[in-house]
Design a protein around this nucleic acid. Structure first.
Lengths: 112, 112
DNA sequence: ATGCTTGTGCGAGAATAGTCGAACGATATG
DNA sequence: CATATCGTTCGACTATTCTCGCACAAGCAT
């Protein structure tokens, strides 16, 4: 058995504001986060069905390295989820405020 | 009387999350905002006494254009203040959360 | 094992952002 | 008016980020 894909994540205490802010400063990533917030854990592809895979990996990696999302391998796909609790612990209210504020200007963006 | 320097600011309703997030993703600008939060209105130079003026203008302009600060000419200097109320109206709690979270990792940074 | 699918790493190119010196316009002071 | 001081603009350079094609490795099915 070979070691499956393993992803490095920052410790909760190491999640830094500037990194998080930067991660959430891109509309594309912001949309991803918003979708994650609505759906819970999703297949990475759902975050950008039309994007080239290498571009998708780029953004999911950035979100992961900044501490915003948790990534795990599931077979050959990878599943992504928000680190809600960790973010809430570290920066209470931040995520909700940002998502609420963004949603306001992007109504009806990721509807089921 | 020539028209004094006039600065363009986005309307409160036009302040957008991605821009704000980006503005606050730079440690330097974050520090400026933190200092503004403590001091109220300050001379622009106080935001970066050691920086080249053109660099200072660059960052204050970015903060202004993103809707984070309000700038007004005062003689030949310029005075900067946080758009606290506007930001609170638009994204309630955001500023406090961010500053609190940043302060935590940068204790004792702009002490009087 | 062969073939298919999926994510990742690498590299190149384009776009964006940061830094800073120099020249300029505007304002205050002598 | 002459001069000094301030902020702005411009241009150049560097650094970072974004995008994406391509090759590769890992997982699943036949």
């Amino acid at each position: 058995m070979a070691a499956a894909r393993v992803y490095k994540h920052p410790e909760t205490g190491d999640i830094a504001i500037p990194r998080v802010m930067f991660a959430l400063s891109e509309p594309l990533r912001l949309s991803m986060v918003q979708l994650l917030s609505e759906r819970g854990e999703v297949d990475s592809v759902e975050l950008g069905p039309d994007l080239p895979r290498s571009t998708l990996t780029h953004h999911t990696s950035l979100l992961r390295e900044s501490g915003v999302v948790f990534v795990r391998a599931e077979g050959r796909q990878c599943m992504i989820q928000l680190r809600r609790d960790d973010l809430e612990t570290r920066f209470p209210g931040l995520l909700d405020t940002v998502l609420h504020g963004y949603q306001e200007s992007n109504p009806g963006m990721a509807e089921a």
